[in-house]
Design a protein around this nucleic acid. Structure first.
Lengths: 188, 188
DNA sequence: AACATAATGTTCGAAAACGAACAGTTAAAT
DNA sequence: ATTTAACTGTTCGTTTTCGAACATTATGTT
């Protein structure tokens, strides 16, 4: 993967798909559309990808993986530390780098290629494990706590990506809401 | 020029130069810089251009030519018609298409590759011929009238490109000022 | 002035992307 | 039900781009 031609071809094809996805649905988009917009030939497209599903898959996988690494690394700090420096922006800021691509993909829900659902599942896993390490409020079903905390965080991520910035008040609110799910509202 | 590779290569190289010009001076920019940023190899660069001067030259030429055609076609309408539909936006609007490139190039003043000066000379030529077709105010040197009308128009073009929009009040003012250079302030 | 370092411009075999053609499939339109 | 048109995926000979190497010419430092 050192050859500049391969890098450029993939870049152009990916960008073409992302742009087309803002105009029509994935189903409506043809390989011809992608080739036309990316100025690549059909044969070159198939040199790189099996089909348009493969292409979308790789994009979704990339940002799923990036999120998985980021979220896993920062989860404990973000959730269990009061230190401002470890706020959720540790996760959002790097993602803003690829904001345009991510924003498009988060709204694509093709069977087995759903970035939003992947992120959700990752957060569910992290919260599932995270809530084991802390006392949680009694009488509330744990699976509900996992789900609601996941969505509280996810909604902030989406908002942040959508507006291309953070919001400290929202961050504070996230923290306050999450803490409500901990027994005695104390951390540790 | 049907091959997509050529189109893409030139597109990428041109875009690289334009981006680099927002960061450093043309003199400081090396062919290596351009190749690095455009993801093209040095040998490919020299397949397309003699050197970086040739590259800049072609860009300047392109937008000089575009302006020449536009301005020549629309000059009489813009200057001598009261009809709003023939206002100066007839010239500015098409140029806004390539706003980013043009804005960069208008600020590059390399010997013999100066888009700003080219535009100025084109307008001087048009005004020079245009003022022959109308009575001008007495006692004011004609070459001064040519120059001042040129700059009044040019300043609006620059402003419009810089702000990426038109301004009807400014357009009206341009018209009022220009008419002052006509004898009796009447048109025709 | 001597030196190292960087930029220029050229060459050439290897790799990638190209266009065009093809058969097979899908989907509308008649 | 049949035709038409579009899309898919593949093949192959041609063209372009690539990387690496090279000699040459600035550029600038001690």
């Amino acid at each position: 993967m050192l050859d500049k031609r391969k890098i450029k071809t993939r870049r152009d094809i990916e960008q073409a798909l992302l742009t087309l996805l803002t105009k029509k649905s994935f189903r409506q988009i043809t390989v011809n559309d992608i080739c036309e917009r990316s100025l690549t030939s059909r044969s070159t497209f198939y040199d790189h990808y099996d089909d348009k599903y493969d292409l979308l898959n790789r994009l979704v996988d990339r940002y799923t993986q990036e999120f998985k690494v980021l979220a896993s690394e920062k989860f404990n700090q973000v959730v269990f530390s009061d230190d401002q420096r470890f706020a959720i922006s540790q996760i959002t800021n790097p993602l803003l780098e690829d904001r345009e691509a991510i924003n498009v993909l988060l709204n694509i829900h093709e069977d087995q290629m759903d970035l939003f659902r992947n992120w959700q599942n990752i957060l569910i896993g992290l919260w599932s494990h995270g809530l084991d390490q802390v006392n949680i409020v009694e009488d509330v079903p744990k699976d509900y706590l996992i789900k609601v905390n996941t969505d509280i965080v996810l909604d902030y991520l989406i908002w942040s990506l959508d507006h291309n910035r953070g919001n400290q008040d929202a961050v504070n609110l996230v923290r306050k809401m999450v803490v409500q799910t901990f027994k005695g509202n104390g951390i540790n």
